[in-house]
């Protein structure tokens, strides 16, 4: 019960910050339209909507990293988290409390982008539903990164790290260009990180290639478990000192 009260507080805290909403929901849509317009003027298919949409939705999740990281960083920086640590909330309540409210935000991001993408010609069918589920799983990876950053850094530092993180997710994930175009070491590095796998899983889901989803999704989930695990261990350590 307590975890739900805490989750509700955290959601209010994020949604009442209008700037975060503008970026989290607005930017992916702007990008979607921008690249679709560019595609119209390109002689070859680079930014077709069925490749573009999954990538941009995953890219939009990097704002979940920002939101959750900033919130946790801010709570740690102010005495608010100290007040909570003195309350009977348990470690489990913190994890649920910071993770849960991000999921409806992720879902909303997905839906808003899907609506925009369907205006741009992305068909909506049973694959889209599968894609929503896959994307929600992927969103947890980005939330975990946020919780890790928020556990380690202050909210101001999280802002700086986000600038780096958002570029990593943009360029090392194959959102804007196929990684095969470059190949070599660059591609190898990309596939050591989870972001390209996340985009691959999302693309496969939209295309209905169920068998292609699992391999990529497995890497994403593996990363999620590890990142979240590290965040929890460090958070618990900080909770006690």
């Amino acid at each position: 019960m307590s975890s739900l009260h805490f989750a509700s507080r955290n959601q209010k805290e994020i949604l009442r910050d209008p700037l975060s909403l503008v970026f989290g929901f607005g930017l992916p849509i702007v990008l979607l339209f921008l690249f679709s317009i560019m595609q119209k003027n390109l002689p070859y298919g680079l930014f077709q909507i069925e490749h573009l949409a999954p990538g941009i939705i995953v890219f939009g999740f990097s704002f979940l990293t920002l939101f959750s990281g900033m919130l946790l960083g801010k709570d740690r920086g102010s005495s608010f988290l100290m007040r909570l640590f003195a309350s009977p909330l348990s470690a489990k309540d913190y994890i649920i409390g910071y993770l849960l409210p991000m999921l409806p935000i992720a879902l909303l991001q997905i839906i808003v982008c899907l609506v925009a993408a369907s205006l741009l010609g992305l068909p909506f069918n049973s694959n889209s539903l599968l894609a929503i589920i896959v994307l929600l799983l992927i969103s947890i990876l980005f939330i975990s990164f946020g919780l890790l950053f928020g556990t380690l850094f202050t909210d101001k530092q999280v802002g700086g790290i986000f600038a780096l993180f958002v570029n990593v997710t943009a360029f090392l994930s194959g959102i804007w260009f196929s990684l095969d175009l470059i190949g070599g070491t660059f591609k190898t590095i990309c596939y050591l990180l989870p972001f390209a796998h996340a985009v691959d899983a999302a693309k496969a889901a939209f295309a209905g290639n169920i068998h292609d989803i699992w391999g990529s999704l497995f890497v994403v989930i593996g990363y999620t478990v590890v990142i979240m695990g590290i965040a929890i261990v460090i958070f618990r350590k900080r909770m006690r000192s």
Partner: peptide
């Protein structure tokens, strides 16, 4: 319960919400 040396409130919650939240947890 504790009132920490530095003020500890949830910035984006209203006065009422801050109090109710604390009571609930």
């Amino acid at each position: 319960n504790i009132s920490p040396q530095e003020t500890a409130v949830a910035p984006n919650l209203s006065v009422k919400e801050n109090l109710e939240f604390t009571a609930k947890i």
